[in-house]
Nucleic acid binder design. Sequence first.
DNA 1: GCATCTATGTTATGTTGTAACACACATAGC
DNA 2: GCTATGTGTGTTACAACATAACATAGATGC
Lengths: 135, 135
Amino acid sequence: MRTHAQHELTKNQALVFGSLSEAGGPLTAYAILDLLREDGFRAPLQVYRALDKLVEFGIVHRLESLNAFVACSHKDCTGHGSAAFAICEKCGDVREFTPDDAVRLLKDWTESQGFALARTTIELRGTCKDCVASG
Amino acid sequence: MRTHAQHELTKNQALVFGSLSEAGGPLTAYAILDLLREDGFRAPLQVYRALDKLVEFGIVHRLESLNAFVACSHKDCTGHGSAAFAICEKCGDVREFTPDDAVRLLKDWTESQGFALARTTIELRGTCKDCVASG
DNA sequence: GCATCTATGTTATGTTGTAACACACATAGC
DNA sequence: GCTATGTGTGTTACAACATAACATAGATGC
Ligand SMILES: [Zn+2]
Ligand SMILES: [Zn+2]
Ligand SMILES: [Zn+2]
Ligand SMILES: [Zn+2]
């Protein structure tokens, strides 16, 4: 079974996390299900339940604007603060980064309003360097 | 027919925009459909096609993390730059704001990567002032 | 043993979003 | 007038995303 620095993953969690890690990019829950049919997966809930936990652990991120999931780009990630994603609309490439300064400003605004910030979704759409260059 | 400073809305667009404006908060496409059945709407596409245009005009925003849509909070909005949303998980209240400074920092990062930023999704989850106060 | 908690398996269903095709209407060019 | 073109609309069917409800299995603690 695949292990993790902070969390001992269950069998299904390890299979789902392995699929996402190997893919190296975002996958929908149903794409993961298809990849894992040979491992005995039969129903979407098997994927969603594992994803829920992996997202809770912080080692998988959900991309709201794609209805997809991606393994954290940090090696041996044990969970971290607010992440952001630059998503290329030409090639589908996704780059994760951690815009602490921008998040600080957003949090300043929420605090000025008495809003207790729990988590952020920051997804940037556009065209990546390679796709800009090629056309 | 409802008019708009920049766009003369079609009948369906006006009906959908009217529903969102009157609601004063986010609605899903199917919730809008139900509201407009008495006006003759029968199928989701009638809503989605109108929403596509309204979002394109910039007078309706899509909330990716809710799969919902909300009328721009600006009076007589004619479209504007990157918006952000603070979404209360207790009461569902949504507050729109325009975090130009944070967006500037995000854009700086994308430019440093050669990424051509087209648009942003910034959605903050947490608890609003009223809900914090009430427990 | 027994209660309890978590993980899992399975069926069915609910929710969100599109494809494909047809028709109505306006406008521009001939 | 009458075509061509573009856009808005109506309708059926379907695809894609996500969860409810119930059953089973294994581990832990008493
Ligand atoms: Zn990460
Ligand atoms: Zn690209
Ligand atoms: Zn707005
Ligand atoms: Zn609230």
